[in-house]
Amino acid sequence: MTKTFCTILTILLFASCSKDSTEPETTPSESMYFPPITGNTWETKSIADLKWNQSAVQPLLDYLQLKNSKSFIILVNGRIVLENYFNGHSATTPWYWASAGKTLTSTVTGIAQQENLLNINDKVSKYLGTGWTSETLAQENLITCKHLLTMTSGLDDSTDDVEPANLKYKADAGSRWAYHNVYVKLQDVVEKASGQKWESYFNSKLRDKIGMNGNWVQIDVNSVYTSNTRSMARFGLLMLNKGKWENNTILNEAYFNEATTTSQNINLGYGYLWWLNGKASYHLPQSQLTFQGSVIPTGPSDMFMALGKNDQKIYVIPSKKMVVIRMGDAADNQNLALSDFDKTLWEKINALYQ
């Protein structure tokens, strides 16, 4: 009996000592927290509770302020660990998501599919009618809703204008990856399939169910979402929990899994309008080059991301039960969704728990 007890004790001690020190400290039995749908209540978790490195906090915040940030949030298990505002921004100030909002369109398209209003494998013209591009009928009929979700429509990406005259043939659908504003046609598809205005459907099926605020605004030819920072964090939390808000399924897990894994064999770092870290290679907007390695080499390999112009960011990291939000102006006076800012930012985030 004594020998057996000692053996078990040795195993337990070994397992405890072998824990990866880079993982955030969370209680294994701690449940995922979801803030109430209404009100400003949101549970917090301190740096001390997590046994993180307090001395790494100020360098991170200094860097964020230096790089034109307006807001920054870290959630662990749904609880706020850091929440900071800079340069005159506040918790109630709305800000644009830019292309990070593409993931909202992806999510609502998935919701419409689970309600049997549409099928992403259907050709787009089933919902919008023929002539929504200036391609031949045969070429246009190749384009499915899934091609819009994966940026593989084959349409000419030299302009953001999505009027039919500007949607010209470049390649057969599915044969070329190119970052293109034509994804917004999915909002028209949802409108036609649901019989509701896009924003009304979005609000009732997603926004209001998880307590977000915000609205869609038209900027030039783009439909852009604006909200406060906590609303962006709520959406990130929903995706951390695989489409469920507490026990309520907002987006089914099958579609969530498709959306957050490689969606085609050209750009391995892209899902359904989500960027994916940790893949063998990736493409960037406005480029046909293949880049080897991970999109953000300093970031966790299982991270998936919503990335927008001027460094609007939602980073979701399942292995660390984390969501990280950054809103603001361009970190380096660039207009890119991805920049060197991501690499350095993740070095400073890593310093919190290494």
Rank of each mutant, 00 (worst) to 15 (best):
L75P: 03
S16L: 06
L155F: 02
V295G: 03
I8H: 03
K185E: 15
T109F: 10
G236T: 05
L64S: 12
S153G: 05
Q113I: 11
R230C: 10
W274V: 13
T109I: 08
D332A: 04
I8K: 09
Y169A: 03
I250S: 14
W177A: 12
N215F: 08
I325M: 08
K313A: 00
A171K: 10
N248H: 12
K348Y: 12
F86A: 09
Y33K: 01
L82M: 11
N116R: 10
A331G: 09
N87R: 14
E347G: 05
T226C: 00
S339N: 01
S125R: 02
G110C: 10
R230Q: 15
W42K: 09
I120C: 15
N247W: 11
L50S: 14
M232H: 10
T344G: 08
L149R: 06
N116F: 04
N213C: 06
K205A: 14
I74S: 08
A48D: 15
T93R: 05
Q65W: 00
P285V: 08
E253A: 07
N215E: 15
K185Q: 15
E43W: 01
K126P: 01
W275R: 09
T22C: 11
S31V: 01
S106C: 05
Q187M: 12
D156S: 00
D302H: 13
F72Y: 10
F341R: 00
I296Y: 07
S281I: 01
L336A: 15
N265P: 03
T107K: 02
E23D: 00
T226M: 03
P35T: 11
D20C: 04
T105P: 00
S106T: 08
K126I: 15
D62T: 14
V217K: 13
G214W: 01
T136L: 04
V81W: 00
L82S: 02
T109W: 10
W275L: 03
T130D: 14
M232T: 03
A351L: 08
P28E: 14
V124L: 14
E163D: 11
D49E: 15
I210H: 12
W42D: 07
V221K: 07
I325W: 07
I143F: 04
N68K: 12
N228D: 13
V217Y: 06
K168Y: 06
S204D: 11
S263I: 02
T298Q: 10
L50D: 14
N333P: 00
A178E: 10
N335Y: 00
F341Q: 08
A193D: 03
F34M: 02
V323S: 03
V323H: 07
M1K: 02
F304D: 03
Q288C: 09
S294G: 06
N166Y: 11
L12F: 11
N119W: 08
A330P: 00
A337W: 02
P35R: 10
P28Y: 07
R79V: 03
K123E: 02
S90L: 06
P35N: 14
Y282I: 12
Y282N: 10
R326P: 01
S125W: 12
V76F: 02
K244Q: 11
N215D: 12
V217E: 06
I296S: 02
N265I: 01
I219H: 14
I47C: 04
D122N: 14
Y272V: 13
